[in-house]
């Protein structure tokens, strides 16, 4: 089973994402800021991370940049309300696999993560 980490400063959103993903993936950790997310990725080496943008300490865009260097094999799916066109383009150019804009349907998240691993293994 693929392993993931959920990163969002809102506890209620971490809870929702866990409920959506746990039937299909092992959620090994959660973080409420980008700095903790970077540390957890180095500890757990997850297959994927869902990453919010607007967070305290290190925001999601800075965390994405750092993760591409420190955890290049971990796929990153941005999950954020701040879906401004330039931010979406920047995130994808920096290596994010997808960008899910809140509010979202659960299926949108499942599809975003599922197609990363389609054909893998």
């Amino acid at each position: 089973m693929k392993r993931g980490i959920i990163v969002d400063d809102a506890a209620i959103m971490r809870m929702r994402l866990r409920e959506i993903l746990e039937p299909d993936y092992e959620i090994v950790a959660e973080a409420d800021n980008g700095e903790e997310a970077i540390d957890l990725c180095q500890k757990w080496h997850p297959d994927f991370v869902t990453l919010d943008i607007s967070m305290p300490r290190t925001n999601g865009m800075d965390a994405l940049k750092s993760l591409r260097g420190s955890s290049p094999d971990t796929k990153v799916i941005m999950v954020s309300a701040v879906g401004q066109k330039r931010l979406v383009i920047d995130a994808l150019q920096m290596g994010a696999s997808d960008f899910v804009i809140k509010p979202f349907e659960p299926e949108r998240v499942r599809v975003a993560i599922g197609r990363i691993f389609d054909g893998a293994e």
Partner: peptide, 12 residues
């Protein structure tokens, strides 16, 4: 989170 979503949508 609701405030974040409304502001985020508006920011787009």
């Amino acid at each position: 989170e609701i405030g974040n979503m409304v502001t985020g949508q508006a920011s787009i």
